[in-house]
Amino acid sequence: MAYALQQLINGLTLGAMYGLIAIGYTMVYGIIGMINFAHGDIFMVSAFIAVTCFTLLAAADVSSIPLALMFVLVVSMFFTSAYGWAVERVAYRPLRGSTRLAPLISAIGMSIFLQNTVQLTQGARVKPIPPVIEGGIELWQTPDFTVQIGWSQLLIIVTTVVLMVAFTWMITHTAFGRQQRSCEQDRTMAALLGVNVDRTISLTFMLGAALAAVAGVMVTVYYGVVDFFIGFLAGIKAFTAAVLGGIGSLPGAMLGGLLIGLIESFWAAYLWAEYKDVATFGILCLVLMLRPSGLLGRPEVEKV
């Protein structure tokens, strides 16, 4: 029981991070109808930026953890959204209205490119950083097991919830949110009504990247290690989360992320840890076969 509770906490933490990345997939899908395969690598870039920042701060002897976190978050979000912008500008915008296959291949190319850029410029070795936040609250002590929620876990969950609320507010209440939703529904019409479609799409990519950057910082804080390959698996899992929740749906992405996180941590704890990635892929296939519109998505009507 205590062990299960601990898995629940771990799963929620993991799920919060997947959810943050999944939002990037879902928003981009919503607006341009394609999967941004490079999104996982954008997340990876942000984790590297976080590592650099933390190392810089450690060298500068900054001891205030909240201050350090704020700084790293802001810096990482800024640079990562620049990457999100550049990826859209270079690899996707010229291909709007092209064949079905072209943007997908371009996205794969971008993903390979980013991965190798980081490998070449930052090194192929795993980057460890000293723990940023240690300790936690002991929730429940049984004779043989102690349930603990780490401060970092709490931070991740709380940050995610706050961001989700802010984000939902932005989409539903601001001018940008309105433009974003109008472009999702009908890009041509939105353009005719004076919405700057290019800018809206760019902003969407930047926002998605910024959220991935939050996840990247959190992963760095939580695991303390980063390498150039983390974007691949994280990307697939977050994508699975987005599909499970219903691609195009923001709450769906969050819900899907949490479910994937929970499934993964329970699977690893009770079944075969080495096959936990297989479980995610299995879910992805099952969802796509049985319910392609996901849990909260609207079924797509094929346009003939």
Partner: peptide, 10 residues
Amino acid sequence: FGAAMVLIMV
């Protein structure tokens, strides 16, 4: 390769 894939598509 990655860069070439993007450029060729574009």
